[in-house]
Amino acid sequence: MARVSTRLRIDCGYEGTQFFGWGIQPSHPSVQASLEIALGIVLRLDKKSFQTVVAGRTDAGVHALAQVFHVDLPEDFHLSDAALRALPRRLQGALGTDAISVHHVALAPPGFDARFSALSRTYEYRIADLAARKNPLHRKFSVVSPYRLDEQRMNELGVALLGLHDWAAFCRPRVAATTIRKLQSFSWIRNAEGVLIATVKADAFCRSMVRSLVGSAVAVGRGKITVDDVARVREQKARVSQWPVMPAKGLTLVSIEYPPEADMAQQALDTRARRTLTSD
C-alpha cells in the first residue's frame, strides 16, 4: 500500500466555454468545483478534507490543453498502487463531462507545488483576421477580426515588450498582489489557414495580462497605435483603455514548465519571494 499523506499531481485539460473560469464561483460552474466534486466521489472524501492548488488560474471562457494542479489529501488517507493507476479513469467517469479531460495522476515528488514550482506558463491566442480562412469548427477557440492585421508590426511589439517589468497597465488590480512579471516570449505566426496564433510565455501572469497584451498587439497590427505608444503606457504602470482586453475564447493555456524533480522545492521557495525589478 502506498500511503498518500501530502499530495497528488494531476494534469488535465478543459474546453472553457461552459465554465466561469478555474476558481470556484458561488453560483456558477467552474473547473475547480467540477474536479473537486469528482475527487470527493471517487476517493469518498468530504470536499472540506482536501485542498486543490492550480498552476494557472484561468478566467471565464479560457481553455487549457495542459493545466496542472495538486491536491492535498488527509494524512490518514491510504491509496493502493492499483487504485492510483485507476484514478484517472475513475475521475474522468465521475466528472460526467468530456469538457474536462484528466490526462495523468501521480504522487507528487518531494517539494512539488503546482503553482510555485512552475518555471513558466505558455498560452496561445488565435485570431482569424480578414486574411484568414474562417473554419467554423474552430469558432469556440478563435476570435474573428474584421481587419487585416500586420503580423510584422505585432512581432516587433512582442520583441520590444520582453523582459522583467511592472505590468500594472495590463492587469486587473488585486489587493497586495505584485504585477511584476518576466515576459519571456511574445510572438505571432500564421498557420496554413492564415489564422494568427500568438505564443505568450512568462514566469507568471497577472489577471487579464495575456488578453491585454494581445489587445495591444491588435491595436498595433491595425495601425491604431505604435510600438512606442505601448511601451510608454507600460511605463505609466496604470491600467488604461487605449486598447481592449480581448475575448476569452481565443485564449488557451498550452503548457506549464517545471524544473527537474530535484529542484522543485527550491523553485517553490524562489517563486514565493516577492518579485522586484532588481531581480535577476
Rank of each mutant, 00 (worst) to 15 (best):
H138E: 13
V214H: 01
N135Q: 10
W243H: 05
V175K: 09
L73W: 15
A192T: 10
I100H: 08
L251Y: 02
D129C: 10
D81C: 06
R126F: 12
V240T: 10
S49Y: 14
T6D: 07
G223F: 07
E235P: 02
H63N: 15
L87C: 03
V218P: 01
Q184I: 02
D46T: 11
D76F: 14
A66K: 04
M264A: 05
I197H: 09
L8I: 05
I41K: 15
R57M: 11
V214K: 02
P247F: 00
Q25Y: 07
R139K: 15
R232P: 00
G111D: 08
E151P: 13
M154P: 00
P109S: 01
A118I: 02
D263Q: 14
G96W: 10
K237F: 02
K48F: 13
A131G: 10
L162T: 11
L137F: 14
G40N: 10
Y14V: 00
V200M: 03
F19A: 01
W22T: 06
A94F: 10
S120F: 09
T17P: 05
L84T: 04
G40Y: 12
C12V: 08
A268Q: 06
A238T: 08
V105R: 05
L35H: 03
R190Q: 02
S34F: 01
A160I: 11
S117T: 13
L269C: 09
A118S: 09
A202I: 04
V143W: 15
S34K: 11
V42D: 01
A86V: 06
A192L: 10
G61R: 12
L65P: 05
Q184F: 01
L35E: 05
T122I: 03
K140N: 14
G163N: 09
A83E: 15
M246V: 04
A265V: 03
V159F: 10
G40V: 12
G215P: 05
R133I: 10
I10N: 00
S117F: 05
T276D: 12
V62D: 02
Q266E: 13
D229Q: 06
R57V: 11
E193W: 13
A238F: 08
P74S: 15
Q152R: 15
E257L: 11
A106W: 07
R133Q: 12
F205V: 03
I100W: 06
V240R: 07
R126P: 08
L130N: 05
Y125H: 01
S145D: 13
H104K: 14
A55M: 01
G40W: 13
F20P: 02
D150W: 03
G158L: 09
V240I: 07
V71M: 10
P88W: 00
G163A: 05
P247K: 00
R153Y: 07
T58N: 11
A268H: 04
A38Y: 06
H138R: 15
T278C: 11
I24K: 12
N135Y: 06
P29T: 03
M209K: 08
A273E: 14
L45W: 15
S5E: 09
V62M: 12
A198F: 06
A219M: 14
C206T: 02
T58K: 00
T226D: 04
M246K: 02
A118Q: 06
D228E: 10
T278H: 13
K224Y: 07
L8S: 03
C171L: 06
P110Q: 08
